[in-house]
Amino acid sequence: MTAGVAGLSVVDLREVALGFGDDCLVLSHRLAEWTTHAPELEEEMALANLALDLLGQARSLLTLAGEADGRDEDQLAYWRDDRDFRNLLLVEQPNGDFAVTMTRQLLFSTFQELLYRWMVTGTEPRLAAIAAKGVMEARYHVEHARLWVQRLGGGTEESHRRMCRALDLLWPYTEELFEPTESWSRAADQGAVPPLSSIEEPWRHSIESLLVDSGLEIPGFPAWQSGGRLGRHSEHLGHLLAEMQHLHRSHPNASW
């Protein structure tokens, strides 16, 4: 196997970038589904900004992932099937109501910010460059999600109830955030990405303190869902991809 920069193999770099890139692409798609449905026009702007930031990150990461075998961002986005996507199950979960969307954002963006912050000084320069830009965006996404979780948790009886339901719905998918793939473990050994176990505690602390402040709590059951990083997805992803890919695939070899 060819050694990449800093001893990270091309295959491992590709897997890591693909996992991250797919997270961003799929979550960006979900956020874009909110277009014209946001609870207020100002929030329409915010959701579109989140979607655009994540789409930009996805493009950089997929471009990096495709370098090894000469595939560009569109070939990776449009010509892989469900089983080849490497994103977390959390990000493919449907939008539900605004409480579900903001909870999903909180759980993911908090994770992403911690990873990016670590990777800025990691040994893989291209990942570090993407992280340096991404960390600023992720920080804003976390901030936005935190403001809303606070307000929904402590707002009305209805919003509180919806927040509790959103947490129950999404909590099972948080286990997977901290399960390293073999590629990830090797990349972590090379110092390109953090060991996921080092992220878990700060993540949990950040989420828990916010929830307590918001009159909410971490659900009392363990998380159990996982498999996204290995291509084992929920039924939702197939529909998402069918919509995203159909036009591109209907015109093979066309350029847009």
Binding site: E42, E43, M45, A46, N49, Y140, E143, H144, L147, R151
Partner: peptide, 8 residues
């Protein structure tokens, strides 16, 4: 939220 909205 006014500050965040203004930024957006």
């Amino acid at each position: 939220l006014a500050l965040q909205n203004a930024r957006d």
